[in-house]
Design a protein around this nucleic acid. Structure first.
Length: 291
DNA sequence: ATGCATAACACTGGAACCGT
DNA sequence: ACGGTTCCAGTGTTATGCAT
């Protein structure tokens, strides 16, 4: 059994079948079949339940899958590790960014990190908090920036900053004259919310429920800058973190919400029990120093 | 029809051997 | 010591069988 066996096995699981795996790996199906048999022979236990139409992982197969992924990840990062020992400090970091955050703060820190480690490259992906957690669990990204708290048994976290959530509406709106508003006063309003991938969405719906109603959602978006157009068109009101409010056109009115708990905290999170590349570890250390 | 397993065969690279 | 040849194990392919 070697790295190649593990690579084939992981691909069979990922592609949900040997035939699909053979296609994605550009090799013949029997090669895969034989490789899986070889592993099973060496381990002396089946990795798949073949009695069903589709291959199903056995308990042993599940353990082998997760361990193989770890080993393949270690193997992939080996050249980078060696480079870091030689002082070349190269690497690549995939970062999932909350689509509801002020990017300027983050980009500034990234810029400073780049000065120190110019050979490190990045993949920046914008998403909702739930999707970021999902991507971290599936090892699709190395680091996420999202809402805290997170499940501490799955993730490590580092708080970034806390901010208030503000009601944002058109200046001509009937509530625009108020300095402070309660959620209960928004009972008859149409809400422009984020989609279900966003924890902000959950928070707003929960606050509305606490105030005794289910918010009437007129539109669900995945990019905060769409809100500007929808507010301009008098389509409804929205609730946004104050850092995002600061980026909006000044023609909108933002109002403090009196209800308790209308704030949130953003933080850096990464998966527990996962091997982190040299570049990723440096990035986390750098963030810790900066914060 | 589709997907996995098996058999037979081809190709490749390394080890062993041999002649110069 | 060096270079050429042979052998063999490992890894892949195609063809085909079998189960669902």
């Amino acid at each position: 059994m070697d790295i190649k066996h593990m690579k084939y096995f992981v691909e069979v699981v990922n592609q949900q079948g040997m035939t699909n795996a053979s296609k994605s790996l550009y090799i013949a199906q029997p090669t895969i079949s034989k490789a899986i048999k070889d592993i099973e022979k060496e381990l002396n236990m089946p990795l798949f339940d073949r009695s069903k139409r589709q291959l199903v992982l056995t308990d042993a197969g599940s353990v082998f899958y997760h361990k193989s992924k770890e080993i393949l990840s270690l193997y992939k990062d080996l050249p980078k590790e060696i480079n870091s020992l030689l002082g070349l400090e190269t690497g690549h970091i995939s970062i999932g960014l909350s689509a509801v955050m002020n990017m300027n703060k983050f980009i500034h820190i990234l810029g400073e990190f780049h000065q120190q480690y110019p050979n490190v490259t990045y993949n920046l992906v914008e998403n909702g908090g739930k999707m970021i957690e999902h991507q971290l669990i599936n090892d699709e990204i190395d680091i996420g920036i999202t809402t805290l708290p997170v499940d501490q048994s799955i993730f490590h976290s580092l708080p970034l900053y806390q901010e208030e959530l503000k009601l944002v509406l058109n200046k001509e709106h009937r509530l625009a004259q108020y300095q402070q508003v309660k959620m209960s006063m928004l009972k008859d309003e149409d809400f422009i919310l984020f989609n279900e991938d966003f924890y902000l969405n959950d928070k707003i719906i929960e606050a509305a429920k606490n105030a005794g109603y289910i918010p009437n959602t007129i539109s669900k978006i995945s990019q905060w800058n769409f809100i500007e157009n929808l507010l301009n068109a008098h389509l409804g009101v929205s609730i946004l973190p104050e850092n995002i409010v600061g980026l909006l056109n000044s023609d909108f009115k933002n109002i403090t919400l009196e209800d308790p708990g209308m704030s949130w905290e953003l933080g850096v999170i990464w998966k527990r029990d996962k091997y982190l590349s040299y570049a990723t570890r440096q990035w986390i250390d750098f963030m810790k120093q900066r914060l």
